[in-house]
């Protein structure tokens, strides 16, 4: 009997979770996607992994020097 009650409780929790999810307000994908593009346009100049460095000197991980002592 306890098994039955706990199964019912579990199922109730699952149902309540789905009720909450079904009540979410959604926006069209076209709006979401245009915001993704907008974010890229606004931040791409700060994105060193995308556009590189204005000069290698500002790259903290640049090679120290290409000269080697033979």
């Amino acid at each position: 009997m306890d098994m039955m009650v706990s199964t019912l409780q579990q199922q109730r929790a699952v149902t309540e979770q789905l009720r909450r999810e079904a009540a979410i307000k959604r926006i069209p994908v076209s709006v979401a996607v245009s915001d993704i593009i907008k974010y890229i346009n606004e931040h791409e100049q700060e994105d060193c992994l995308l556009v590189g460095f204005s000069s290698q000197k500002v790259n903290p991980f640049r090679e120290k020097s290409s000269c080697t002592v033979l």
Partner: peptide, 8 residues
């Protein structure tokens, strides 16, 4: 992981 702008 993402790059800073979310492009990569």
């Amino acid at each position: 992981e993402w790059s800073v702008s979310g492009r990569l």
